[in-house]
């Protein structure tokens, strides 16, 4: 039986290795798209807020599976939500690409002329313009729900650990802590990718933005297809 401290370190190190071995390939396009969308702005605070949101969601999921004592029951209940989040992510990345290149006026996309105060229009507008750095926190909270194999595996372990602890309260805390440690471990890899993709010094190179925009639109399309097949 491993000590609690050892299990936390195990989750942290697992997150770290998974980050470099898995997340860069699967979720790298998301953080790269955010970096491209930020253009000449610093990515530091937005990325940290995004990852904080992701970690909070992982921790909540960890607490839920520990309380439920079953990974499969929770997973079955959130499957449709995850599918929706995956579609949302794909659409968001595509729109970021379109907006970045200036090819599609967002007002036309969401019908701002007829419904200037519409929830969808306002919501997407805030996301895409990203004037408020804080918008990356709810984005992280939402995208923390994206279906992901290693997150499932970590939740499986969190559910088991939660069940092995005598009281439900301590089990929930353990589940939350383990998933937070796992999420924290994945941050360095994704942050490094986002930092390397930061194009703040390229503001005069319009062609790079055009190429980036095309790639973002294609990546978003792939996300939507994957979501439909999920």
């Amino acid at each position: 039986m491993l000590s609690t401290k050892t299990i936390f370190l195990l989750y942290l190190s697992t997150g770290f290795t998974i980050g470099f071995g898995h997340c860069i390939g699967m979720c790298g396009p998301i953080v790269v798209s955010f970096s491209l969308n930020l253009k000449d702005k610093s990515i530091l605070v937005p990325q940290l807020l995004y990852h904080l949101g992701r970690i909070i969601t992982y921790a909540i999921l960890g607490g839920v599976v520990a309380a439920a004592g079953s990974f499969t029951i929770v997973a079955a209940n959130i499957e449709s939500i995850q599918k929706g989040v995956m579609i949302f992510t794909g659409v968001l990345i595509m729109l970021m690409g379109l907006a970045m290149a200036g090819w599609v006026p967002l007002g036309n996309v969401f019908g701002d002329h007829s419904h200037p105060g519409g929830v969808i229009s306002k919501g997407f507008g805030k996301l895409l313009k990203a004037k408020s750095t804080l918008v990356y926190l709810p984005l992280g909270l939402l995208l923390g729900l994206l279906p992901c194999g290693p997150v499932y595996t970590a939740l499986l372990g969190a559910a088991r650990t939660g069940m092995e602890i005598n009281t439900i309260y301590h089990g929930i805390l353990a589940g939350m802590g383990l998933m937070a440690a796992f999420g924290l471990g994945t941050v360095p890899a994704l942050f490094l990718v986002a930092k390397l993709a930061g194009l703040g010094w390229l503001k005069s190179r319009a062609i790079i933005y055009k190429v980036g925009a095309v790639l973002m639109i294609l990546v978003g399309f792939v996300f939507v297809i994957k979501a439909v097949r999920f």
């Binding site: 860069i24 390939g25 790298g28 396009p29 790269v32 798209s33 970096s35 491209l36 990718v193 390397l196 993709a197 930061g198 194009l199 390229l202 790079i208 190429v211 980036g212 790639l215 973002m216 294609l218 990546v219 792939v222």
Partner: peptide, 15 residues
């Protein structure tokens, strides 16, 4: 870094 973001996104698309 110029090609970096393009490489990441392209690799994802190719895979």
């Amino acid at each position: 870094m110029i090609p970096f973001s393009a490489v990441i996104l392209t690799a994802f698309l190719l895979a």
